[in-house]
Amino acid sequence: MSSAWDYYLTSVLVFFAIDTSAGLALNLQFGIAGIYNFGFVVFQAIGAYVAGVTTIGPPVPGLQESYILGARLPFPIPWLAGAAAAALVSLPVGLACLRRLRGDYQAMVLLVFALLATTVATDATGLFNGASGIYGIPQPFVSLGLSRAGYNWAYFGVAALIAFVVYLGAQRISFSPLGRVLRSIRDNESAAAAVGIGVYRARVKVFVLGGAVAGLSGAVMVSYIGAWSPGSWAYAETFVLLSALVVGGSGNNNGAVLGTFLLPVLVTQVIGLIPLSTADVDVVSSLEWVLIAAVTLFCLWLWPQGALPDSRRIRKILLPARSAVTGEPQS
């Protein structure tokens, strides 16, 4: 009983640590730079896939699997490979999307990108084994010979350390000159755009950096759960992280941490604790999404700055306040 509880608690903690890294990376892109990266989960997925296929080794002939890059590399390399692959893909995506386009246009394109990526991963069976995905990925620290709970604690330690390093890095960037540039773009894109090419470059930089951390978080995730398939990374997963930022306070790294604790961790776990018959499980997991969407709308309406607001937000007092939609002034 106690060991089951221990196991449960540690897995929640591991997920929290992983989500925190991801949330901080997304906060850098969305909260600080104002990029609506609805394709964030794709970069996590790339990291997870690449880390997975570089850990499990080549496809076993009899199993009808097929995936690229099958290799059995020692521990930190697959994670680094995952992060690098995600960064590599985010570079052209960032270069293409962040140029000239209006923010909501970018958001739509990135959302479409995420939807398409799922299709490709499912249908291009030679890439990452299609809809079945990759599974049976060896866990990295098994050789240490720890107990199940002990292993979880160790894994949490590693994931937490990564999250902490990401946090320090995010804090550093957020208060650096680059962070200031990014905030100024977020708060007044047209004014910042007049400054020139530096803006574009700054945004691409943060997009690739966020992509790398996303890839790393995916890699840490896949090594923990041991399997990865298109079902693991629906476009809506990005939405949970975005909601977490909205609730916690986008633009504020502490807010990002708080938000990831509140939404993906707390809400999911609390709902998971409701005793259910198997028939109800599907309904409740659907309602969980409805609940997250409702919470997001609710927070956007009442506290758009989130629980821990970004103190460096430039207040929009004298910006042209006319709504482009109603022609009415905005307050």
Binding site: I317, R322, P329
Partner: peptide
């Protein structure tokens, strides 16, 4: 008459 954007 006083007028402006928002409440300012």
């Amino acid at each position: 008459v006083s007028a402006g954007y928002g409440r300012i």
